[in-house]
Nucleic acid binder design. Structure first.
Lengths: 207, 207, 207, 207
DNA sequence: GATGAATGAGTGTTCATTCAT
DNA sequence: AATGAATGAACACTCATTCAT
């Protein structure tokens, strides 16, 4: 993992913002250069090409996404508390990187670019593993139901969050969230609690 | 609602496919014209501009999204059954229009285009209303818990579906879904059942 | 062989001029567009790309290079007269297309472009064939020496011509050729006669 | 004549190679810098500019082109033998510097650069002079015909050589020259003999 | 009503060169 | 003396759109 200098980091920051707001194709290198106050040629000079800029941006941001869950397991918490903490951690982290997820999700959908998503998948696999350990523990202790498909728990945590984010204008309106801060606060409090409840309900539900 | 002729419908169909696959900016009018076997000038001629084509496409498709839930309420079903049926209806409908949702979600995110999403929001409001009626009924009958935020049930239904779709490559891999048909079958069976279970668990969960 | 319209022919003409004067890499599509008084986009529009423009230019010009030598053989001429006429024909033709040869020679030398020179080689082969027939006839009649390598006669005809052209500034100076017309006249008269004499000398030379 | 240091000579060597292979415009300073393992800025630093590099390259190489023909005249040879030796010397020397000639010929043709070719012309004049002395001697001894245009003998020697070189792919094919070594051997043996024969035939030909 | 020709603006990228160190 | 960073200009090409027919 190469380190980037200040200017390169500035370019990455601007690119992240513009790509997430207007998409990769909707953002020109001139837009990035103008907003980052650098010469157009710098993007090719530093990153090789616009596409490689995206790639390096994704790799750079993804490498910070792996959750540090060691403490979670060391701490003396009940499986329920662990689930709560895990979800809180998830949402906080997703919300910090929501621009990146916006970009990645769209780029995965449009298969045009052949970006290596393996490191992204790696993160997801690791996170899934952590989730599985907690659920296993809860099941062993007889707290959670036996009938749980772990692979579907993750989309049940992240799905609502992303859906909420993607329909920001709609939920802003019906929940009367007046400022972006209100929206953010709603996510970190109400929505997080809702998702925690959902997962816990699911883990104890006997159908 | 203006009616479109055959050629216009063909253009809309091709545009829907290409926009969903490569994004709006990633699709050129030449691509559309070539795939639809029409002259490039036709798009401007029929729709005014590429942007207006998108707008008309969205409006045209959205109008078909309103769920017909009348029968759902006429039928003599328990609230649980109604929830199951509603979710089944939702997912089926989402899945039939997943291209359209792909487009709309991205276009909402990139605020560039000022497309009128009111009719889209209308649909969501109507669907929310239907959901609310069922939940109200379940609560009145003492079957569901009192403590339910209806506004968050919808993202809990649709969120996991969209997240699953958006991460198709990842879930294809970890669930060993070999063909697109396998993937679709998994959505309509396993994922639907999972979401039904999730919602029902949530509706009876007393925290 | 597709026909070109007036504008396309104008572009080809300008491209031929500029490519021969400044080379392919030394000529930008902007230069061509400006000199041909057309929009830059037209070059891509009409020919696909700058490289394809070169290719089509070469093919278009080459197809006119095959010498019509039927009359030469029908006419009741001595082999010596035929050689004279053939060389005259050669030089006249080379001189009419000297720009094209300038381009082709350089492009052959720089192997960068993978242009199909087969049609060019075809022409050379055909011309070689004609030359061989005349020499065979002269040998049969006992007029020419037996010891002739036909493959080397062609470079002995064309080589001096091209060398003269390529060193135009030098020969202009030492031969005191004041105007381009003088230079051209020298080629068509003196140089042609010199080459005719050279070849005839060679054909009768017993070493 | 300024002397060049090792790095400068390396740059000249690489530039000579690349210019001859891909032309001046087809070679970027980056290409040269990479192949010469030097910093890009070095070319401007050492030579002023890319164009001046070409100029200095040409001047440097031209100064080595003057044939040393003193021995030729000192030796006790017949005019015919002298012609043979001269041509052999010519071809050998041309072939050693064929890259340089490739560059110069193209640069003369494209009048863009205003390089001083006077020293190049000087060389040609000197060589012409030597040729003239031999021919004069042959004429005085009654061995050569009177009617000789010396200015046209040079192109008759060099023209076939260059034409052969420029159409390398064609002659490689029709003469079945399998390797570059075969090609070179053919030039130094067969082609040289052919040119010697041509000139001698011309010098004795009475038309 | 429908279209081929045409265009100006914009795309990402590469260029030779400069400059602070 | 030598160089890595940086740049403005130019590159070939594609874009959505217009317009005469």
């Amino acid at each position: 993992m190469t380190e980037f200098n200040d200017k390169q980091n500035e370019i990455l920051l601007v690119a992240e913002k513009l790509f997430s707001e207007h998409g990769f194709d909707g953002t020109s290198v001139r837009d990035i250069a103008k907003e980052a106050n650098i010469n157009i040629a710098m993007i090719s000079y530093y990153f090789g090409s616009k596409e490689k800029l995206l790639e390096k941006l994704i790799i750079n941001r993804i490498s910070g996404l792996r959750l540090e869950m060691e403490n979670l397991f060391k701490e003396n918490l009940t499986p329920f508390e662990k689930i709560d903490r895990l979800i809180e951690l998830y949402i906080t982290r997703l919300n910090q990187n929501c621009r990146m997820y916006q970009i990645i999700h769209f780029e995965i959908a449009s298969k045009k670019r052949d970006i290596n998503y393996e490191s992204f998948n790696d993160v997801k696999r690791t996170n899934l593993e952590a989730l599985k350990r907690i659920i296993d523990e809860g099941q062993e202790k007889g707290l959670f139901t036996k009938n749980i498909d772990v692979a579907l728990i993750a989309p049940t945590i992240m799905g609502p969050y992303f859906h909420f984010q993607m329909n920001k204008p709609f939920y802003t309106e019906i929940l009367n969230l007046k400022t972006p801060e209100d929206f953010d606060r709603y996510i970190l409090n109400d929505l997080t609690k809702h998702i925690q409840k959902t997962i816990k309900a699911l883990l104890v539900y006997e159908n």
